[in-house]
Computed example of a mutant assay.
Amino acid sequence: MTEAESLPATVGRRLYIQLGITLIALAAAGGMLAAHRATLDSGADRLAAADGEWLVLACVAAMATWVCAAVAQQGAVVERLPRGRLVAAQFAAGAANHLLPAGAGAAVVNLRFLTRCGLSTRRSATALAVKAAVGSIARCALGVALLVASPGTVRLSARVPHVLVLLPVTAAAVVLAVAISGRLRRVVGGTFADVRDVHRSPARACALWGGSVAFALLHAGVVVAVVHAIGMGLPVSRVVTAYLVASGAAALLPTPGGLGSLDAALALALTAAGAPGPEAVSTVLGYRLLTGWLPLAPGLLVLALLVRRSAL
Results as ranks from 00 to 15, higher is better:
residue 73 Q to T: 14
residue 75 G to T: 13
residue 75 G to P: 11
residue 76 A to K: 01
residue 76 A to D: 06
residue 77 V to I: 10
residue 77 V to S: 07
residue 77 V to T: 12
residue 77 V to Q: 02
residue 77 V to W: 03
residue 78 V to P: 11
residue 79 E to Q: 14
residue 80 R to G: 08
residue 80 R to Y: 05
residue 81 L to R: 05
residue 83 R to Q: 14
residue 83 R to M: 12
residue 83 R to W: 14
residue 84 G to V: 04
residue 86 L to M: 13
residue 87 V to N: 04
residue 87 V to D: 04
residue 87 V to Y: 03
residue 87 V to T: 10
residue 90 Q to G: 00
residue 91 F to T: 09
residue 92 A to C: 04
residue 92 A to G: 12
residue 92 A to H: 02
residue 92 A to K: 01
residue 94 G to Y: 00
residue 95 A to Q: 05
residue 96 A to E: 00
residue 97 N to C: 01
residue 98 H to P: 03
residue 98 H to A: 07
residue 100 L to G: 06
residue 101 P to I: 04
residue 103 G to H: 00
residue 105 G to Q: 00
residue 105 G to D: 00
residue 105 G to C: 02
residue 106 A to F: 00
residue 106 A to D: 07
residue 107 A to H: 03
residue 107 A to V: 06
residue 108 V to W: 01
residue 108 V to F: 06
residue 109 V to M: 11
residue 109 V to K: 03
residue 110 N to F: 00
residue 110 N to I: 02
residue 111 L to T: 07
residue 111 L to C: 10
residue 112 R to C: 12
residue 118 G to S: 02
residue 119 L to T: 05
residue 120 S to T: 09
residue 121 T to K: 08
residue 122 R to Y: 03
residue 122 R to E: 15
residue 123 R to H: 12
residue 124 S to K: 01
residue 126 T to D: 11
residue 127 A to I: 01
residue 127 A to G: 05
residue 128 L to N: 09
residue 128 L to H: 02
residue 129 A to F: 00
residue 132 A to L: 10
residue 133 A to I: 04
residue 134 V to C: 10
residue 134 V to Y: 02
residue 135 G to L: 08
residue 138 A to W: 01
residue 145 A to F: 04
residue 145 A to K: 03
residue 146 L to H: 09
residue 148 V to F: 08
residue 148 V to C: 09
residue 151 P to R: 04
residue 151 P to I: 09
residue 153 T to I: 11
residue 154 V to T: 04
residue 155 R to N: 04
residue 156 L to Q: 10
residue 158 A to Y: 12
residue 158 A to S: 14
residue 161 P to K: 08
residue 163 V to P: 06
residue 163 V to T: 04
residue 163 V to N: 11
residue 165 V to M: 12
residue 165 V to N: 07
residue 166 L to D: 06
residue 167 L to N: 01
residue 170 T to M: 12
residue 171 A to Y: 05
residue 171 A to M: 10
residue 172 A to E: 04
residue 173 A to Y: 05
residue 174 V to P: 01
residue 175 V to L: 14
residue 175 V to A: 15
residue 176 L to V: 15
residue 176 L to H: 15
residue 177 A to P: 15
residue 178 V to D: 09
residue 179 A to V: 15
residue 180 I to C: 08
residue 180 I to G: 10
residue 181 S to E: 09
residue 182 G to Y: 05
residue 183 R to K: 14
